[in-house]
Design a protein around this nucleic acid. Structure first.
Length: 310
DNA sequence: GGTAGACCTGGACGC
DNA sequence: GCGTCCAGGTCTACC
């Protein structure tokens, strides 16, 4: 018999909207079920791995979390802490975002889904660089199948041979970078708490991210938003497509990138959210609300190349 | 400071 | 079934 717990949410919180707000909800070990509107995944807890299923009976209602085994009091607290990070439950800046960009007030969009840990977000971002989305899906699935069903921890990756990651997890040349990131975090040279600390400036965090292996300008800006720092737009080929197709920009890719950055300047500290929800809106207009996407069909094709072909 | 080329994988396409 | 091309950011070497 597993443990069942409840967690209060902010009054505006809507699980299906706020989980299905960023592509990581389609990546292992996360599994969103469109029929039951629940999120299931394994978590690495002090007493071992446990799978949890998270549901919500209605907008603003408490979350109902069911574990697949009995959880100690300490583990229940861990689950709540990890779920709070994943679902961004403690984000108090949604109202401020809606004041700056009123387009999303009605739908209530503002929170972006992320991982239970900074390290998982880091590796997921590296696994999304220079690769098409279906390969990112495979890398995440294989990392969970081969190393840990709750997603590899820094310690686990630090111990792995690069060749294993390449051959069995299909991460390609990212093997070395992932093991290095594991070693840096496991060895304490990179402290997740420092990156999470709101006392450190966006500029300092961005610079520190750029110094990490496998993290360039796009990845650093993306990890920034996953940290709840939305002052930078993460520019990639998708930004160029958006600039051309939706914002009517013209010129070379480099020129469009600059125009996109300039376009979102007025949104100040909320630039990324304004940019991202425009993109997300574009996907949803083509494929319906993200909470209805099936992981193995729509969920495999929702980015740039596949969309522009349609 | 800017840029060319290498780095891998998987899918699309032509034969 | 096989070979070729292409998409996708980061890193290094070089100018």
């Amino acid at each position: 018999m597993g443990t069942r717990l409840t967690m209060p949410t902010p009054g505006d919180y809507l699980l299906r909207r706020d989980v299905c707000s960023y592509g990581y909800f389609l990546l292992a070990p996360n599994h969103w079920d469109p029929r039951t509107e629940t999120l299931t995944r394994s978590l690495d807890l002090s007493g071992g791995i446990a799978a949890v299923r998270i549901g919500q009976p209605g907008r603003g209602k408490a979350l109902v979390i069911e574990g697949d085994r009995r959880l100690s009091r300490g583990e229940q607290a861990e689950v709540k802490r990890l779920v709070t990070r994943m679902l961004h439950l403690n984000d108090v800046s949604v109202g401020a975002f809606h004041k700056v960009d009123g387009r999303w007030k009605k739908s209530g969009r503002g929170r972006l889904f992320r991982s239970p840990t900074f390290f998982e977000d880091l590796i997921k971002t590296v696994a999304s660089c220079n690769v098409t989305w279906p390969s990112t899906i495979v890398m995440n699935r294989r990392l969970c199948e081969v190393i840990s069903p709750a997603f590899p921890s820094a310690q686990q990756l630090a111990r792995r041979r690069e060749a294993t990651l390449r051959a069995r997890c299909r991460v390609g040349y990212r093997d070395k970078r992932m093991v290095e990131l594991g070693k840096l975090v496991a060895g304490g040279e990179v402290e997740p708490a420092w990156f999470e600390d709101r006392g450190n400036s966006d500029e300092a965090v961005y610079k520190a991210l750029l110094a990490l292996p496998g993290i360039g300008p796009y990845a650093a800006a993306n990890v920034m938003q996953l940290l709840g720092r939305y002052s930078r737009v993460a520019i990639d080929t998708e930004s160029v497509r958006h600039g051309k197709a939706v914002l009517g920009m013209t010129g070379t890719a480099k020129q469009i990138e600059k125009q996109v950055v300039a376009h979102f300047e007025p949104f100040g500290e909320h630039r990324f959210r304004s940019y991202w929800f425009e993109l997300w809106d574009f996907y949803e207009k083509k494929h319906g609300p993200a909470w209805t996407w099936e992981r193995d069909s729509t969920g495999k094709m929702f980015t740039a190349a596949s969309l522009t072909k349609e």
